[in-house]
C-alpha cells in the first residue's frame, strides 16, 4: 500500500519538475534500462538517451490532467524504453533478434506517438525561435516565458518606454508565429 502511495507522490513531483522526485526515479530505474540497451547492441550513451527520452514521455504524460498510471513506474519506463530502443534498432537496420528484453511490458505505442508529435512541434518552435533572431528571441522569452512586465523589458533592452517595447514585441511575435505556423501547417498536412 505504502509503495503505491509513494509512486503517486513521485509522479506528482515529476509533473512539477521537482528535482528530488526526478532524481529518485532516475536512480531507481536507470540501471535496468542501461542493461536492457547495452545487452542489445547499445552503447552507454544510447542507454542514457533512451532512458531520458522515456522519462520525458512519462513527464509529458504526468502533466496531463486526466492522467493515471495503471502500472508501476518501473514497468512503464521499461516498456517505453524497450519500444524506443527497438525503433532505433530498426531505423539503423540493426534489428537482429525478436526477443529484446524479457520483463513484463505494457502497451505504450499511443504515448510514444504522442511524444513524437510533441518532439516535432518543439523542434519547430526551436527553429522558429532561432530564426526570429535577436533581440526578438530574448524579448519574447522575457515576456512569455520569464513573465517579465513590459516596463522591465523596456529598461533591459533599452527602449525609451514600455509602449515602444510593446510595439517591438508585437512585431516579433507576429514574425515568430509566421515562422512557426508555416512549419506546423506543413507538418500536419
Amino acid at each position: 500500500m505504502d509503495s503505491i502511495l509513494t509512486e503517486k507522490e513521485l509522479i506528482r513531483g515529476l509533473s512539477l519538475n521537482d528535482k528530488s522526485a526526478t532524481e529518485r526515479i532516475y536512480k531507481e530505474n536507470y540501471q535496468v534500462i542501461q542493461n536492457l540497451v547495452m545487452n542489445n547492441n547499445g552503447s552507454e550513451d544510447d542507454a542514457k538517451d533512451i532512458f531520458q527520452e522515456a522519462l520525458i514521455v512519462l513527464y509529458e504524460k504526468s502533466r496531463m490532467t486526466e492522467f493515471v498510471l495503471n502500472c508501476q513506474i518501473k514497468t512503464y519506463l521499461y516498456s517505453v524504453s524497450r519500444r524506443l530502443w527497438l525503433k532505433r534498432l530498426q531505423k539503423n537496420n540493426w534489428y537482429e533478434r525478436q526477443s529484446v528484453g524479457i520483463e513484463e511490458v505494457v502497451v505504450v505505442e499511443e504515448d510514444i506517438a504522442f511524444h513524437e508529435k510533441r518532439n516535432s512541434e518543439f523542434g519547430m518552435m526551436e527553429s522558429a525561435l532561432a530564426n526570429v533572431g535577436e533581440p526578438c528571441k530574448s524579448i519574447l522569452e522575457a515576456y512569455y516565458i520569464q513573465k517579465q512586465n513590459m516596463q522591465d523589458i523596456a529598461d533591459r533592452f533599452g527602449y525609451t518606454n514600455a509602449d515602444n517595447a510593446k510595439n517591438q514585441k508585437y512585431k516579433c511575435l507576429t514574425r515568430l508565429k509566421k515562422l512557426f505556423f508555416a512549419q506546423y501547417k506543413n507538418g500536419n498536412s
Binding site: N17, T22, Y30, L55, R118, E121, M125, I145
Partner: peptide
C-alpha cells in the same frame, strides 16, 4: 503561447535530467 511555455518546460526538464545524470 501554450506551445511556447511547454517548449520551455520541456527544455528545462531535459537539462535537469542531464544534471541529475552527472550528479548520480
Amino acid at each position: 503561447i501554450n506551445q511556447m511555455e511547454q517548449f520551455d518546460q520541456d527544455r528545462q526538464f531535459r537539462s535537469s535530467l542531464g544534471e541529475i545524470h552527472n550528479k548520480l
